[in-house]
Nucleic acid binder design. Structure first.
Length: 507
DNA sequence: ATGCATGAGGC
DNA sequence: CCTCATGCATC
């Protein structure tokens, strides 16, 4: 009901104000409710974060804990940069809130320097009124990694997931009993690993917290050699996780995070049964899904999301998939492609920020050439069309990968070293100054003439060809961005004409 | 995850 | 020379 509650992490002042207002309100409402849970969270938060990883060995935690907290209070996450700007605004007002915060602001609990998104996410969660419902918080995390205190890494030390802070009802009896709440419970998280020995979930008390699980695909807690789906185990995991996660559906929907609709009945035989149903299962066009180029982005998004989960549950990296893919016949894609395909999901949810700062300002610039603005075009993602094209390939491959996995870890990973063949030109690295100038030119004219490019190249002392390619890539990125944004505001295309016209032949 | 590079297909 | 779809190199 509250449009501004969209999970946008916008840098726009207006929406920020709105968010904060809501936040304010909600905090009042939730104070009492959330207190207990906050305490519970406090007990856990400082625990297994990678940076503050002292907890387990010795209970010398207290001093360090307080230090960590005071740090995060006094100053915003050090890592924060321009991109994390939304953090500050959304936080500081929190401190200044007239409401008597008897217990620390929820925002601080996740003020984890590790994750620049944490604060923003927390703000969003709070704004959603879901902070009290820690479950929602946990879910938001499924698609927004880096929101929690616990990072889960695999054998290579790569972060493959996060563990939500879940003060759950079950052990609460204890927590409630120890009213002090702050004491770190002697929880010794047991870790569930997949076939590769990678951690995919933790067991705290009698709770199983899947690292990544939004679609009922319980990451199989199996040891090498074991059969993939043991109903008993699977159920345990699901029972625990689903009951937690299912609630989220509503609150999550408001965040416009891809809504995971789960057939409540399909709880028993989730993953193995259907490689296809995963995508279909969730293809829920509640968003009156925007179609770009005749491609259902919603569907692609869901698939990408599911694919990632499946990939991780097999303990595979994007690179591995890419390599394995190229080993098979038929179309193959690189790690880059797989990554972009995955990214498509989140970027298509681009916050208004992109529209306001990127397109709008670029348009402004085009319409008012004199006006300067910080150029912030999107990355060069794949087009919906490409995503559509890749999807079946990935789907097919994953189906077989899962099949093989079930049969016993085969050699999925039989790769073939790609022939270096020609020596590729070394990647040019433009200096910030050069980029500034290039961007300035681009804003004035996306299609500089050969003459102009020559001049630019000379002025900047770069290869002319390099400059030309830069413009090509820039145009490509801009165009892709526009396509994505069109989905959001199809009607506002009016002021967009001049730009699109210059980038496209038709349309 | 993203920035520059490559190559096919076009005009 | 351009656009597009992708990939190698890097960040």
């Amino acid at each position: 009901s509250l449009p501004s509650l969209q999970f946008t992490a916008t840098s726009s002042l207006n929406s920020q104000l709105q968010q904060l207002q809501h936040l304010h309100q909600l905090q009042h409402q939730q104070q009492q409710q959330s207190q207990q849970q906050q305490q519970a969270q406090q007990a856990q938060t400082p625990q297994p974060t990678q940076q503050t990883q002292q907890s387990q060995p010795q209970p010398s935690a207290p001093p360090q804990q307080s230090q960590t907290q005071s740090q995060s209070q006094s100053q915003p996450p050090p890592a924060s940069q321009s991109s994390s700007s939304p953090q500050k605004p959304s936080q500081s007002p929190g401190h200044g809130l007239p409401s008597p915060l008897t217990s620390p602001n929820p925002l601080q609990l996740v003020n984890n320097p590790l994750a620049s998104q944490a604060a923003a996410a927390a703000a969003a969660a709070a704004a959603m009124g879901s902070i009290a419902n820690s479950q929602a918080f946990g879910n938001a995390l499924s698609s927004l990694q880096g929101v929690t205190g616990q990072l889960v890494t695999n054998a290579q030390g790569q972060i493959i997931g996060t563990i939500p802070l879940m003060p759950n009802p079950v052990p609460s009896s204890q927590a409630a009993g120890g009213a002090q709440g702050l004491q770190v419970q002697p929880i010794t998280p047991q870790l569930l690993t997949n076939a590769q020995g990678q951690i995919i979930a933790t067991v705290i008390g009698n709770q199983i917290l899947p690292v990544i699980n939004t679609q009922g695909i319980t990451l199989s807690p199996l040891k090498p050699g074991q059969q993939l789906h043991q109903p008993s185990q699977t159920q345990v995991g699901q029972a625990a996780s689903q009951s937690n996660l299912l609630h989220l559906a509503h609150s999550q929907a408001s965040m416009s995070q891809s809504p995971v609709r789960q057939a409540s009945s399909s709880s028993s035989s989730s993953s193995s049964s259907s490689a296809l149903s995963v995508g279909q299962l969730v293809s829920n066009p509640q968003t009156a899904s925007g179609e770009v180029d005749g491609v259902n982005l919603e569907e692609i998004r869901e698939f990408a999301k599911a694919f990632k989960i499946r990939r991780l549950s097999l303990g595979l990296t994007q690179t591995q998939v890419g390599q394995a893919l190229s080993a098979t016949e038929g179309p193959a894609y690189s790690q880059s492609a797989i990554c972009r395909h995955t990214i498509l999901r989140s970027h298509f949810f681009l916050p208004q920020e992109a529209q306001e700062n990127t397109i709008a300002s670029s348009l402004t610039a085009k319409l008012n050439p004199g006006l300067l603005y910080p150029a912030r075009f999107e990355k060069l993602d794949i087009t919906p069309k490409s995503a559509q094209k890749i999807k079946p390939v990935l789907e097919r491959w994953m189906a077989e990968a899962e099949a093989r996995h079930r049969a016993g870890m085969q050699n999925l990973t039989e790769f073939i070293g790609s022939e270096p063949s020609k020596k590729r030109k070394r990647r040019t690295s433009f200096t910030p100054q050069a980029l500034e100038i290039l961007n300035a030119h681009f804003e004035k004219n996306t299609h500089p003439s050969g003459q102009e490019m020559t001049e630019i190249a000379e002025k900047l002392n770069y290869d002319r060809e390099v400059v030309r390619v830069w413009f090509c890539n820039k145009r490509q990125a801009l165009k892709n961005t526009i396509k994505r944004l069109k989905q959001h505001e199809p009607a506002t295309a009016v002021p967009m004409e001049p730009l699109t016209d210059s980038l496209e032949e038709n349309s």
